[in-house]
Design a protein around this nucleic acid. Structure first.
Length: 799
RNA sequence: GCGGAUAUGGUGGAAUGGCAGACACGCUGGUCUUAGGAACCAGUGCGCAAGCUUGCAGGUUCAAGUCCUGUUAUCCGCACCA
């Protein structure tokens, strides 16, 4: 057939549009399969060449499942709230909704041009009021359960975007998006208590099939550590509580450190002779950007509290208390007991300020460095702990603390609550009302969605208020409880909100009465296979698992984990091996590739480029190789022969087997290599029978669907190739009668020989001996050992 | 600093402990062409050879790219988390 990819691809895309072969059926009696890719943020830049990689991969899975008889849900939508759109709108004096509409249209066109088998009838958009109604609805449920709360807190403030950032959005002291400087600022913020779910989020990772590196990233991010809280008496009368994982070293505690923001500094104001100096230090620490704070790791600074001392509960000794920014107010209790002999940071600080260092675990050389090893070493200088190893000492100390009512075991997490508010326009309004008399009140469900009002200007304000705050007619309302004058919350939700539950909406996307019907969710959920970027392991993935778990606890969802399986694709780099970026000028535009080579080639190439999980550099030359393969495939219908060739049939079945299993293992590159090999054999034979060509067309179809539809039609296939039955290989047909094996002498290959398949050792040796090739190697030597691996190798060890 | 990953021809990459380099690119030569950045055919790890080859050094094994120990380099994540 003639392979005019532009004509063919348009033709089949139109047919798919019209016939809707990829629409998921609402027949809940069928076996289902839910394949999901992360929905994109429709940026102004259009589709990136990195997008088609995961999309094609799951498209292949989805297409194969359909061909295997599953009712497949493979949906797509738009995660369209967010700053770039808003900034673009401001810059070009447009409405963010219009910008979004344009970008979505562009993205959709691009995705359609790739022949992805999405069910477009279920398309969703997080900025659609019919969608964010339910985002707000879920938020209200969180609020009613006490999982949403407002708190004055030290937040990360991007000085450039003029917006509060979540901890997750701060990378090395810079804003994740604009790389602007991030400073600390105190603001009253809506928070979501994700920490309530820390244990479940961590423990349930054992129940799901995620690639290990994703699990690891989540585990590290949640950062559970077992330790103890210990109360230290102070000369001020208050008990200073610390968290430690090394209660065993309590005898070695020689001073205390509290965070500069610790409330005791204020509480003890009257007792502190150097209060001003402490305030200066606190101010200095706050002014430091995250970046400086991280950079200054090596130089520890601090100020000693003059006027209050602490007492070590086991030694009875008085100890000085310092403030230092190496102790974080946000972790543990914001205070530590310092054991310089066995903690590197404390050691460094103690050296700087000339504080005593007492060794309590023998085994290191504390004149040189802190000894932090917990696996060996016995307790010394530690009263009732002496002679124990560290693990035993921890146990015994925990008992002691409990018995004397000065502390107890506890668990702490690195994970912090989720800052769930942005002072920006283009997000879901937080559906709450502030009443002087009744406090924060949820908007009645009947009033949802609280829509974004039309405003003249979206510019962020310097005082950190949302632009919504300036629209008095929107802000002013009445209290849903008492009817008095009240004000709406003007903050909007962060971009992560809409994506935290979108996989549920796909189950039943046009439902006006519920986020999705229970029946639909029970059928489709959980997602069978979810693929996305590594960068979302600690953000989106954790957030959406949290929401799913919450909805499960609310009895609204039947599965405690939303995703059964999670894989992560590697990045596509520029031809220079560097990350693609405008500034480097190494960006490849997928539209150009589709234009020049066709979507089928782009798809095939992106799957052939290398290990799906690893990043790989773009290579225009290799794209041509894939195009060449399709060009050669396109004329197979002119090479049809009447007779089946036994060898070719064997290879076909071997190829079907390999492609079938490789797709499941995401080894798309070797699946394609196998198909290329098969086609090379067809060319070598000079022809192929029609049945074999049909099977070959079907297994290639998920990779390059347009050309396969065309081929299928050309060779008289019934219906759409995309819906043809996936071929089953016949193990009998794969069997061979003769296999070439390698004959080794002392583990070195000397020659190869053809043996009957499955032949036993004795007859194998017999044939080798009779071949006459062996004599020259073993003449005059003794055979010490013979190792025969069936169908593989025969190793003769001689002396 | 902690954690993770990776290292194979000129290039991207294949190899349940069993013939390293599948498949593809590139390159070389050829055929057909007025022409080739088209198509097709042949060759292609290195070395003149004996032989040598999976970052480096050891080890286990009849047999190691693969397992173990150490080491180097690169990339990624987290980063004063007590």
């Amino acid at each position: 057939m003639k392979y005019d990819y532009k004509v063919i691809e348009k033709k089949w895309q139109d047919i798919w549009d019209e016939k809707q072969p990829f629409a998921a059926k609402n027949d809940y009696t069928k076996k289902k399969y839910y394949a999901l890719v992360e929905f994109p943020y429709p940026s102004g830049a259009g589709l990136h060449v990195g997008h088609p990689r995961p999309y094609t991969a799951l498209d292949i899975i989805a297409r194969k499942r359909r061909m295997q008889g599953y009712n497949v849900l493979f949906p797509m939508g738009w995660d369209a709230f967010g700053l770039p759109t808003e900034n673009y709108a401001i810059e070009h004096k447009m409405h963010p909704a219009d910008v979004t509409r344009n970008n979505v249209a562009r993205f959709k066109g691009q995705l359609k041009s790739l022949g992805l088998s999405f069910d477009w009838s279920r398309e969703i958009n997080t900025t659609d009021p019919a969608y964010y109604k339910w985002t707000q609805w879920i938020f209200l449920r969180l609020f009613r359960k006490g999982l949403a709360y407002k708190k004055d807190m030290n937040v990360n403030w991007c000085t450039h975007c003029k917006v509060v950032l979540a901890n997750e959005e701060v990378i090395a002291g810079e804003c994740e998006r604009c790389h602007g400087e991030v400073v600390h600022k105190t603001k009253s913020q809506w928070m979501l208590k994700i920490t309530d779910y820390a244990d479940k989020l961590l423990d349930d990772l054992d129940t799901v099939d995620y690639v290990e590196r994703v699990k690891l990233a989540e585990r590290n991010w949640i950062g559970r550590s077992y330790g103890a809280e210990v109360d230290f008496d102070t000369t001020a009368g208050d008990k200073l509580r610390v968290f430690t994982t090394r209660a065993d070293t309590l005898f070695g505690a020689t001073y205390m450190v509290i965070a500069p923001e610790h409330p005791f500094v204020d509480k003890w104001k009257d007792k502190l002779k150097n209060y001003d100096a402490l305030m200066d230090y606190r101010g200095m620490a706050a002014r430091k950007s995250e970046f400086e704070r991280a950079e200054l790791v090596k130089e520890k600074t601090g100020v000693m509290l003059d006027g209050v001392k602490a007492v070590n509960p086991v030694t009875g000794k008085e100890m000085p208390i310092f403030v230092s920014d190496y102790v974080l107010v946000t972790y543990g209790t914001g205070a530590i007991m310092a054991v310089p002999a066995h903690d590197e940071r404390d050691y460094e600080f103690a050296k700087t300020y000339n504080l005593p260092i007492i060794e309590v675990v023998a085994g290191g050389d504390i004149s040189k460095e802190a000894y932090t090893d917990v696996s060996e070493g016995k307790m010394i200088n530690s009263g009732f702990l002496n002679g124990l190893d560290v693990a035993e000492a921890k146990e015994k100390m925990a008992e002691y603390l409990r018995a004397h009512n000065i502390g107890d075991r506890t668990v702490k997490y690195k994970l912090r609550d989720w800052v769930f508010a942005r002072q920006r326009y283009w997000g879901e309004p937080v559906p709450l009302v502030w009443c002087e008399h009744c406090g924060w009140q949820p908007v009645p469900e009947s009033e949802l969605p609280i829509k974004l009002p039309e405003v003249a200007t979206y510019e962020p304000t310097d005082n950190g208020e949302s632009p919504l705050a300036t629209i008095t007619e929107w802000v002013n309302t009445t209290c849903p409880k008492c009817g008095a004058d009240a004000k709406r919350e003007t903050d909007t939700m962060p971009q992560w909100a809409g994506s935290s539950w979108y996989f549920l909406r796909y189950c039943d996307p046009h439902n006006d009465n519920e986020m999705a019907s229970r029946e639909a969710m029970d059928y489709w959920m959980p997602v069978d296979w979810y693929n996305g970027g590594m960068e979302h392991a600690t953000l989106h993935l954790l957030y959406s698992r949290f929401w799913a778990k919450f909805l499960y606890d609310e009895g609204l969802l039947s599965c405690p984990e939303p995703y059964l399986k999670r894989t992560a694709h590697g990045m596509i780099l520029g031809e220079d091996g560097e990350k693609m970026s405008k500034s480097r000028g190494n960006v490849i535009n997928p539209d150009d590739v589709v234009n020049e080579y066709g979507a089928d080639t782009l798809r095939l190439y992106e799957m052939f480029i290398g290990d799906f999980e690893k990043s790989a550099p773009w290579s225009t030359n290799s794209v041509k190789g894939c195009k060449r393969f399709l060009d050669r495939f396109a004329v197979l219908d002119e090479m049809i022969v009447r007779e089946k060739d036994e060898e070719l049939e064997r290879e076909l079945h071997r190829t079907i087997k390999k492609v079938t299993s490789d797709i499941e293992d995401m080894k798309f590159n070797t699946a394609i290599a196998a198909m290329m090999s098969f086609m090379n054999s067809v060319y070598a034979k000079g022809g192929i029978d029609i049945e074999s060509l049909k099977s070959f067309t079907i297994i290639l179809c998920p990779f390059s669907p347009h050309i396969c539809e065309e081929m299928w039609a050309s060779i008289g296939g019934k219906g759409l190739c995309s819906l043809a039955l996936w071929p089953v290989y016949d193990e009998e047909k794969i069997k061979v009668t003769e296999i070439e094996i390698a004959v080794q002498i002392n583990s070195k290959v000397k020659f190869t020989l053809s043996l009957p398949a499955g032949c036993d050792e004795e007859s194998a040796y017999d044939i080798i001996e009779k071949s006459g090739k062996l004599n020259q190697y073993i003449e005059g030597k003794t055979i010490v050992k013979k190792i025969y691996i069936k169908d593989r190798i025969f190793n003769i060890v001689i002396r």
